[in-house]
Structure formats: C-alpha cells, structure tokens
C-alpha cells in the first residue's frame, strides 16, 4: 500500500539515508530495525513530510506523496507517532483526541461562531469518535484528566491513540515502548497487534529485538542509512549481514 522508492537524504554532505526502497503491504506489521544512528527516524520523517528527501519518492496506493506537508499526508491515511512521547501536555486527554479528529470535520471559524446545524452534528460526531477511541485505548475513565497525571504507559498509549482517532490506513510507530519496563512493553505489543487486527497496517521502529521478533510479519534492517536485509523474522535472525551489523553480537540481545 505504501512504497518507498530510492529515498536519499543528505544533511550537510552527510548521507543519512541512501537509495532506500521498500514496500509496506496491506494488513501486515512491518518493523524497521537497525543500530543507533542507522537513519530509522529519518526514514519516518521523510515518509511523513517532516523532512524533504534529497531524492527519491514515496507513494501511497500509487499516489505520489513526496513533498506534501505532514498535515496533508495525514489526510492520505498515514498517521504517525514520535520517538519521544509527544502529546498536547497542557490540555486534557479528550482535548488531545478532539484536536487529532479536527481535520475530518468542518469545524471552522464560521460554523463555530454561529453554531450552525453542521457544527452541532460534527461536534457530536467528533466527541463520539474520541470517546470510542479512548475506550479502545482503555483510557475512557481518564477522558477529563490532564496529561501530566497519566502514567508513562498511559501516555504512550494515548500518543498512539491520537494517531488512531481518524482511523488511518497505515500507522507509523516510532519506538512506541521506549523507556517502558518489560511488563508494560508486552501490554503495548498486545495492543499494537489489536490495532492491526482491526484493519490498520502498522510500520514500527523498535530497538527491542525480542518484541519485534514476536510481533512483526516482516523486517527491514537498516545500517548507515542503507537497507542491508529484508525478510521474515526467521530469515533476519540468520542473516549474516545483520549479525555483523550488530557487531557480531547476539540479535536477541
């Protein structure tokens, strides 16, 4: 459904991503792994319009989306999360959800000013959707809470929820369990599978090998901005180039 074609990004002469191509298939969980500084987050930023690629293209369902701004790419059905948990932390949980739902509505200035019939129905619809998603996240009882009162895991969950509220076709997760302990990580992993089972394709960047091996359908391995391997978890585990990239170390570490 999404294809990356010969994507290259230079930063002041430094090559962060080089000639990278891969596809994300409908309904799968695709993981992008690689050592620190391999350019994983840069790939996400290129796919979502946060950064403009030096060369190469990104397609969704054959449609070229290279060069679109992040807010336009969301409207194509691609939502993302950030590596560091990114929330509207001055606002309440429900507000976070409503903001993310806004682009689907016509709740602009004039409709808001005059409380038109359209305003009324769309406002209700937004609220309903936000609450449904919160329910799905297991955060329904926290709707009116302010962000700093949430636990770290709840915040991670909400960050995914913000991306989910508009029912994207593809969800890009940048280290969704970073900083969480084992037990919490497992819960988030289960949750991500649940998201996929609801029909959302997932592409995930992770460090935690064990979690990835148990969850991903396919894996793309990056090193120094280049793809060094691609395949199922079993293929990746035995891939010589991958083992070398991880300093000859144990991939399960």
């Amino acid at each position: 459904m999404l294809s990356v074609k010969y994507l290259t990004k230079n930063f002041d002469g430094l090559v962060a991503v080089k000639e990278l191509s891969f596809d994300i298939r409908e309904g799968e969980i695709l993981a992008i792994i690689g050592p620190n500084g391999a350019g994983k987050s840069t790939v996400f930023n290129l796919m979502t319009g946060t950064l403009a690629p030096t060369s190469g293209k990104v397609f969704i369902h054959e449609e070229n989306i290279t060069g679109l701004k992040p807010y336009q790419i969301v409207k194509k059905g691609v939502a993302r999360t950030f590596q560091t948990t990114s929330l509207f932390d001055q606002l309440r949980v429900i507000d976070n959800m409503l903001i993310a739902y806004k682009w689907r509505t016509r709740l602009g200035f004039w409709n808001t000013l005059f409380h038109t019939p359209a305003w009324k129905s769309q406002h209700d619809q937004a609220a309903r959707n936000a609450l449904e998603t919160l329910d799905f996240l297991g955060l329904a009882d926290k709707a009116l809470a302010f962000i700093p009162t949430l636990s770290q895991e709840e915040q991670k969950r909400l960050a995914i929820g913000i991306a989910l509220v508009c029912k994207p076709k593809l969800l890009l997760l940048d280290e969704p369990t970073g900083g969480l302990i084992q037990e919490e990580t497992e819960r988030i992993a289960l949750f991500i599978k649940k998201v996929r089972d609801q029909g959302t394709t997932v592409c995930i960047i992770e460090h935690k090998m064990q979690m990835i091996m148990g969850m991903a359908d396919r894996i793309v391995v990056l090193n120094y901005g280049q793809k060094i391997a691609e395949g199922t978890p079993d293929e990746i585990k035995t891939n010589q180039a991958v083992i070398e990239a991880y300093l000859g170390g144990d991939v399960h570490a």
Binding site: T50, S86, F88, R104, A163
Partner: peptide
C-alpha cells in the same frame, strides 16, 4: 483547541492534520 494545539506542540499539531 487547534490554536492551543499549535501553542502547545506545533510538530504534533502538524502531524495530526
């Protein structure tokens, strides 16, 4: 809320459309 979203976290606001 979108105004406050921009004040609070502009990159995230951008990322949610």
């Amino acid at each position: 809320l979108t105004f406050m979203a921009v004040r609070n976290n502009e990159p995230l606001a951008d990322a949610v459309g």
